[in-house]
Computed example of a mutant assay.
Amino acid sequence: MNISRITRLSIYAAFISMAALPISTIAQPANDKNVRMVVPLAAGSTVDAVARSIAPGLARATGHQFIVENLAGAGGIPGTTQLVKAAPDGLTIGMISSNHVINPGIYKHVPYDTLKDITPIVVVATVPLVLVVNPKVPAKDVKELLAYAKANPGKLNYGSAGNGSTLHLAGELLVNQTGIDIKHVPYRGTGQLVIDLLSGEVQMGFVSISQVMSHVKAGSLRALALSTTKRSTALPDLPTLAEAGVPKYDFDAWIAVVGPAGLPKESVDNYATAIRTAMDSPEAKNVISGQGLMVLNIGPKEATAFFQSELDKHQKLVKQSGATLD
Rank of each mutant, 00 (worst) to 15 (best):
I3T: 13
I6P: 00
L9Q: 14
I11K: 13
Y12A: 15
A20R: 13
S24M: 15
T25E: 04
T25R: 06
A27G: 02
A30R: 15
A30L: 12
V38S: 00
A42T: 12
S45L: 06
D48T: 03
D48L: 03
I54A: 07
P56L: 05
G57D: 06
L58M: 10
A59L: 02
T62H: 06
G63F: 05
Q65G: 05
Q65W: 03
I67E: 11
N70L: 02
G76R: 07
P78T: 05
G79N: 09
L83C: 07
V84R: 04
A87L: 11
G94R: 10
I96G: 03
S98E: 14
N99Y: 07
K108R: 13
K108M: 06
P111Y: 01
Y112K: 11
D113A: 09
T114L: 03
L115F: 03
K116M: 08
K116H: 14
D117N: 14
D117M: 05
I118D: 02
V122H: 07
A125S: 15
V127Y: 00
L129C: 03
L131Y: 13
L131K: 12
L131M: 14
N134P: 08
N134Y: 12
K136I: 11
K136H: 14
D141N: 15
L145R: 10
L146I: 15
Y148K: 08
A149T: 07
K150H: 14
A151Y: 06
A151H: 07
G154P: 10
N157E: 11
N157C: 10
G159N: 11
A161T: 07
L167D: 06
Q177P: 07
I182P: 05
I182E: 09
K183G: 00
H184M: 06
G189Y: 07
G191S: 14
Q192N: 14
L193K: 12
I195H: 13
L197E: 11
S199L: 13
G200F: 11
M204I: 10
Q211P: 01
K217W: 01
K217I: 00
S220I: 00
L221Y: 05
R222F: 00
L224N: 09
T228Y: 03
K230N: 12
K230V: 15
S232K: 09
S232T: 10
T233C: 00
L235E: 09
L238I: 02
A242V: 05
V246S: 07
V246D: 08
P247W: 06
P247S: 09
K248E: 13
Y249P: 02
I255L: 14
I255W: 00
P260N: 12
A261F: 10
P264K: 11
P264I: 12
V268I: 12
N270T: 08
N270K: 08
Y271T: 01
A272H: 06
A272E: 02
A274E: 04
I275T: 09
D280A: 15
A284D: 02
K285P: 01
K285F: 04
N286T: 12
Q291G: 02
L293H: 05
L293Q: 06
M294P: 00
N297A: 12
N297R: 09
K301M: 08
E302F: 03
F307H: 06
L311R: 04
H314R: 09
G322H: 06
G322S: 03
A323K: 03
L325P: 05
D326N: 15
